[in-house]
Write a protein that binds this DNA or RNA. Structure first.
Length: 487
RNA sequence: GCGGGUGUAGCUCAGUGGUAGAGCACUGGCUUCCCAAGCCAGUCGUCGUGAGUUCGAUCCUCAUCACCCGCUCCA
């Protein structure tokens, strides 16, 4: 299966889907660039998500499986936010670990966990207590990217590149409620770049240090939150299936209780069996988390921790004051129908745009055997993208470069462009070779102008996966393809 | 971060201590009425990067970067 992944990576490079960042300088670990086809594919993934979340959402009807109708609005917040955001969210403390390595047993321990860890050489002792232990000096691990505000900025002006987009939606909760007339329940959706200093970037774009997220925060009444959690969990899983991931490779996995984050009441992952994983293993595409009122309360009161009784309370510093004070703003919600004031609970479906894109690439990659012009079976590589995701929807190919066929084809190409449908015109090389080129970049349909076109104004449409062809009037094909893309 | 492997044309790879080659691809032309076709012509390389040894390094040595595999990590 490693071989399979190598072929996929090679195709991504060869056809301009994904390049290594800064390749001419030797590359940069954990960073990737999307080429001309890759940018279209990833945009289509993000568009499909945005349309599903925002554009197509009907706030006056009750979607199947939903407890009631609801509103959805979008947001695009800055990547760099007030440093206090990350202190209250818990990222600052969680992402700033001091670690020691033991050179004797190649193990790494958090400094504050050494006394509770077992030495791999002798489990009855702690790391550093065994004769053979060779612990390094504590080293700081900054999992958040640091940057500096202002040209002369010093230590006082440290800021962070966001490690998730979610906080922008919590911080803007009050702005949205005050300015848009939305009522709970409603969701705020945002897609954008996030940054994490992953210790081990690996597996192509799966674990990158700069990546794009598609996140939504759904605010609801505490009494309804579990229903909404189940609704979004099922709906998000179905979204991937609808866009072509196979049910054998996609799973919805509920987290075990001990796996839940400290604030989470329930979490499920949408996971995909990537080719770089062992058989039976799955990689996370999206996490759907029930976050309770943790986030809004954190930004009101300050960073929260769980006390011995299991309740979330503001973490105290040595001086007895909040360790990381919140904004002090009231982020509660007043329901003017029930006259009830409450802090909404949050359901968060958080997806990786690059991971989803990679899953669609892996799923699409197909090798089959098709007869050549002599009838002998030849290997064919094709990308079976869902038409909604395919970077190029249709290729227009004059069968031969004469008798007016290129002119008819070029006119058709321009009609597709005018209709906003990504199209490609190719009159070079033999027809079979051009079909294969399109197969390899996942173009769902090829339209061929042939001798008959000049007689009766019909062209052939060829299906990528089945290789079947049928004729359609040249003045109807744009509509026909447009209809297929809608359907 | 540790251990192992890899790095030569766009791709797949060959090769040698004396400054590089094949197939495919690509470009142009001719031919070609449906699935990687034929003929002709043509383009393409800081041999990952840097340093050392040497009269001379793509080849030997060291360092470094990137990718792959295993371990570790994964809020």
């Amino acid at each position: 299966m490693e071989n399979q992944m190598e072929k996929i990576v090679a195709l991504c490079k060869r056809r301009g889907f994904i390049f290594q960042s800064s390749e001419i300088y030797g590359g940069l670990n954990g960073f990737w660039d999307y080429g001309p086809l890759g940018v279209e594919l990833k945009r289509n993934v993000k568009d499909a998500w945005w349309r599903d979340m925002i554009t197509m959402h009907d706030e006056f009807s009750v979607p199947p499986g939903a407890p009631q109708s609801f509103s959805m609005v979008g947001l695009d917040c800055s990547i760099i936010m007030h440093p206090q955001v990350w202190k209250c969210s818990g990222h600052y403390d969680l992402f700033h670990d001091f670690m020691v390595d033991c050179k004797a047993c190649n193990a790494r321990f958090r400094v504050d966990h050494v006394k509770s860890s077992e030495c791999p050489l002798k489990p009855s002792k702690h790391p550093g207590e065994h004769d053979k232990c060779q612990l390094t000096e504590p080293r700081e691990f900054n999992l958040m990217f640091k940057t500096t505000l202002g040209a002369l900025g010093g230590a006082e002006d440290v800021a962070f590149m966001r490690p998730e987009t979610a906080q922008g939606m919590f911080v803007n909760f009050k702005n949205v409620v005050d300015t848009t007339r939305v009522k709970v329940p409603f969701g705020i959706a945002q897609a954008g770049k996030s940054f994490r200093n992953e210790i081990t970037p690996r597996n192509f774009t799966f674990r990158s240090r700069e990546f794009e997220q598609m996140e939504m925060e759904f605010f609801c009444h505490p009494s309804q939150s579990y229903e909404w959690y189940k609704y979004w969990r099922d709906r998000r899983y179905a979204w991937y299936l609808k866009l072509g991931l196979s049910s054998e490779k996609l799973q919805l996995r509920d987290h075990a209780k001990d796996e839940l984050s400290h604030y989470s009441v329930g979490t499920a992952d949408v996971e995909y069996a990537f080719p770089f994983l062992e058989a039976g293993e799955f990689g996370e595409l999206e996490g759907i988390a029930h976050r309770g009122d943790f986030d809004l309360r954190s930004h009101m009161e300050g960073k929260l921790v769980k006390n011995d009784a299991g309740q979330l309370v503001v973490e105290q510093g040595p001086d007895g004051k909040p360790r990381h004070p919140g904004s002090g703003k009231d982020l509660s919600y007043f329901d003017d129908q029930t006259r009830e004031r409450f802090i909404p609970h949050v359901i968060e479906p958080a997806a990786g745009a690059d991971r989803a894109t990679l899953a669609f690439i892996c799923e699409a990659y197909t090798e089959d055997r098709q007869p050549d012009e002599k009838g002998e079976l030849q290997e064919r590589i094709l990308m079976k993208f869902h038409p909604k995701l395919a970077p190029i929807k249709v290729a227009i190919l004059p069968l031969v470069k004469k008798d007016g066929m290129p002119e008819v084809g070029l006119n058709l190409y321009r009609e597709f462009k005018a209709a906003g449908i990504p199209a490609y015109f190719d009159q070079q090389a033999a027809i079979g070779k051009r079909y294969r080129r399109q197969d390899e970049i996942g173009t769902p349909w090829c339209i061929t102008v042939d001798g008959q076109t000049l007689q009766d104004q019909t062209v052939t449409i060829r299906d990528r996966d089945s290789l079947q062809q049928w004729r359609a009037p040249v003045n109807k094909v744009v509509d026909e393809i447009a209809a297929k893309l809608r359907g």
